[in-house]
Amino acid sequence: MRGKILVIVEHRAKEIREITWEILSGLKSLIDNYDMELQAVVLGHRIDSLVGELAESVAKLYYIGDEELEFYTWERYLYALIPLIEEVGPKLIIMGHTSTGMDLAPRLSAAMDSPYIPDCLNFRFDGEDLFVTRELFGGKLNSEIKAAKNKSYFLTLRPGIFTPKGEKGQQKQVKGIATAFDKKGFLTQFLGLLEPPREGIDITKADIIIGVGRGVGDREKVKVVEELAKVTGGVLAGTRPVIDSGWLPKERQVGQSGKIVKPKLYIACGISGASQHTIGMKKSEIIIAVNNDPHAPIFKVAHYGIVGDLFEILPAITSKIRSVKSPR
């Protein structure tokens, strides 16, 4: 396969987001066998320092600068990107499966009448045909998908599966692109960026985290997990549904839309292991998972697994630790 790959860069608060570095590194190995040129486009306002950094990592960088692009909105990105993509003619247009990718990629691909495959783990070409692998049912099945033949394809890649290697080369060509926005025509107005609230405990500082999942059943039963937290000196954290249901406060949410934690020990109790959760805990030093479903995807990231009812397993562990810590 020959052609260009165009990566749409993500940045927030004057920093390039990790996902962009992940994609740039991941792509280098994915396209090793193809004669493809890695290009990127960054949209923003007064981000010259970011532009310099990026230009060392790709063959060619497009920079679309405009005060309207200081913050991401689907609309300004869409109108700025369509003419560029038409002109450059990339085979693949790639973003991360992030809040930005989920918001923009389906819409942009629809506007350009191109196939879009979200949340991919990889891709490959067989002749002219594009194949990708992605997950179904929260990671229980893999699905190999073939895109209908087209001149270009849109993909989002799953965050957290490629490791940024930080290879830098010579600073390459940067091509500035001007915009021609019809500002009055915008239907979406950016009003502000809210920072994460800084209240409550900071679970990212904990050495031991006991993770509560929906499998715990209800708020009352969180006590069973809390007992384990007490004897281990760990703190309680939870998955999104646990926070949504009010069993634990928001600052204890682990995952993509919560906190990224790397404790010495993470014990996942009744957690299925959805990618949006595991991205927040899979770098923990030791991961232990308790789940009554032997096929739960959490066992794909755990180091030690226990298949069983957490209401039988956890109390046994708790009382054992108690007796070890205070022997009679």
């Binding site: 998908i145 895109a147 209908a148 096929h295 794909k300 755990a302 069983g308």
Partner: peptide, 26 residues
Amino acid sequence: PKKEVVRLYPSRPEFSKVEMLGGSPE
């Protein structure tokens, strides 16, 4: 359709990578 499923297959935990602890709760 702009995409089609070619093949589904189970995405199982690699039990070579995770050590499973078995037996009674004790």
